[in-house]
Amino acid sequence: MALLALGPVAGFSQSPAPKVTAKPAAKAAAPVRSRTSVQYAKGFTLSYVGNYKVLTILSPFEQKTTATRYLLLPRGTARPTGFTEAQVIELPIRTLVGLSSMHVALADFLGASNILVGLGSFQYVSAPKVRQRITEGKVLEVGQGKQLNNELLVAQHPDLVMVTGWPGESLPRFQTLAAANIPVLINSEWVETTPLGRAEWVKVMAALLDKEDLVNQKFNQVVRDYQRLAASTRNVAKRPTVVVGMPFKDVWHVPDADSYMAQFLRDAGTTYPWDKTRAPSGSLALSFETVAPVALAADYWLHTGSTKSKAEIVAQDARYTAFAPFKRGMVYNNNRRTNAEGSNDYWESGAVRPDLVLADLIKILHPELLPTWQLRYYQQLK
C-alpha cells in the first residue's frame, strides 16, 4: 500500500499555519545497480536500461518463435516511452501466484517462499515453508488451465501470476486477469535443453524480487559445483549403458538428444543409446519392442515411474524381470523425496539444484568418484 504524505491537521496545533510552498517534483528512480546476466538459458533474455529492466520470454511453440516482453519498473514510477506492447510489472513483487511446482522452487531458492499467496494445486508442493503456509491458510488453491479460478484471482489481486508456457497458454488466454490489471508472466523453463539452462530461470525470479546479488552468489555456486562434477566423469574408464523410463499406454517415452535429461546422462558419464536422436517434442515415443533390446543388456535402469519396489515393477509387466539391471538390482528411481501428499521434490528443488541431481547420478553410476555422497533424490529399488 502506498504511503500518503499528510499535511497539518486542523486543530492539532495552536501555532499559526506554516507557509505553504510548492512541492518539489518527484525525483526519477535511481538506475538499477544490482544486475545479473543470462549465460545458459535460451528461453529468456534480461536487460537493464536506466532504472528499469526488460524481460523477454521466448515462446517456441510456433514455427516462427514469438516473444513476450515485460517492463519491470520500480513501484510508482512512470512507464518509459517505447515498448508499447510490453506488459508492466512493478518491482519488487510482494505477492505471487504460481501455477507450477517449479515456481515454488524459484521462490524458495531465493528465500522468498513468503510471497506465494496462491498455487495451481496444493498436491504438487514439496517446500516445507510453503506447505506450512498452506496449513496456516495463507495460500489459496486457484486451479489451472480451464479450471483456473479467475474470480478468486481478481479478488486476491496478486502482484503477479506466473503460468507455465505450454502450447496455447499465450497471454490472450488470460484476458480476464489483464482486464483486472493483474500481470501474467509466462515461464517456459521446461523447454531448456540443459540442466543449467533450466535452473537459470531463477534469475527471472531474482529480477522480479530485485535480488540479483543473491542469485549471482547462489547460482554461480551451483554452476561451479555442477561443472566440477561433470569434469570428474570425462575420463572414466567405463561408461555404463542406461535405459530410462517405463511405457505409458504402450508408448515408451525416452529423452531425445536435445533434452536436459540427455545432458544429465552425458555429464554423468553414461552410454545412452539415443544420445544422437532428435525429436521435435524433446522426447522420443518408442515401442516396448524398440527399447527392450537395450534394456535386456543395460547396466542401469533409471526413472521407473512412480514405483517404489521391484515388486511394483513386475506387477505392471512380468517381462521386466528379463532386463539385466532388474536381475542385478541396478534399478534406481528419482522419487526418494516424495511426501505424504504425493509431491516429488525431484521436480521441484531438483530443477534448481542440478548439481545435487548430477551428484546422485554419479554416485549411482560411478560410486568410486563420490564415496561419501548420500543419495538425495534417487533410491535403489529392492
Rank of each mutant, 00 (worst) to 15 (best):
A237H: 00
Q123H: 03
E289K: 10
P240Q: 09
L208E: 00
V125A: 04
Y52S: 05
A297S: 14
P31G: 09
G342M: 02
R319I: 02
A5K: 15
M246R: 14
Y332S: 01
E212G: 07
R94K: 12
I362L: 11
A297W: 00
L361T: 14
L356D: 05
L58K: 15
L110E: 05
L356G: 03
T271S: 15
V294C: 12
T194N: 11
A311S: 13
T270G: 06
P128R: 01
T77L: 07
F326I: 01
L148I: 10
L284C: 06
P8H: 12
V139N: 08
E212H: 11
F326A: 08
F323K: 01
V294G: 13
R69W: 04
H103K: 00
A105G: 04
N150R: 07
G137P: 04
D250E: 10
F44W: 02
L177S: 11
K327I: 04
M330S: 08
T66I: 07
V314G: 05
T233F: 15
P255W: 07
G269I: 04
P183H: 11
F248Q: 05
V294W: 15
V139G: 03
P325W: 10
T277F: 01
R319K: 06
L375H: 09
V161C: 09
S188M: 02
E348S: 00
T270Q: 06
A318R: 12
T277M: 03
A179H: 15
L369S: 06
L72G: 05
F83D: 15
E341P: 06
N181W: 09
